[in-house]
């Protein structure tokens, strides 16, 4: 099964989860997702997701000037983002449990 297809459905949740721990800038989020095991995550997907979540009002953003590198735009969760993370986590957990039970049942039936 192609994990990139699965990723599409949960990328919002993954990005919210990453930012819940610590604010991050675009490429930093990509790197943390990959480090967490989502190695196939695309840069454009993460950037697009960040912008969409920001436009939807779930994220705050602020620019941190840098002496040596480029200025970095950090994103963080606001109240709306945290609420979204809670809701999505419940949805995902329920879905994952259902899938786990389904797959377990099939294996038993097989």
């Amino acid at each position: 099964m192609d994990t990139t297809q699965l990723l599409k459905g949960v990328l919002d949740l993954a990005v919210l989860a990453v930012l819940d721990g610590e604010d991050g800038y675009g490429y930093d989020v990509v790197r943390r997702l990959r480090a967490a095991g989502l190695e196939d995550v695309g840069d454009a997907s993460v950037y697009g997701t960040l912008r969409r979540l920001y436009a939807a009002g779930h994220l705050t953003s602020y620019v941190v000037p840098s002496v040596e590198g480029p200025h970095r735009k950090y994103y963080g969760l606001n109240a709306s983002g945290r609420a979204e993370l809670t809701t999505s986590t419940k949805t995902w957990t329920g879905f994952a449990d259902t899938m786990a039970a389904l797959l377990a049942g099939e294996q038993v039936a097989a």
Binding site: G26, Y27, D28, D43, Y47, R51, R52, G69, P70, K73
Partner: peptide, 17 residues
């Protein structure tokens, strides 16, 4: 514009890292 507002900044990050 809303979507690509800071695309350049993001690409600069990618390029620098």
């Amino acid at each position: 514009e809303e979507l690509l507002e800071d695309l350049e900044e993001h690409l600069v990050e990618v390029a620098s890292e």
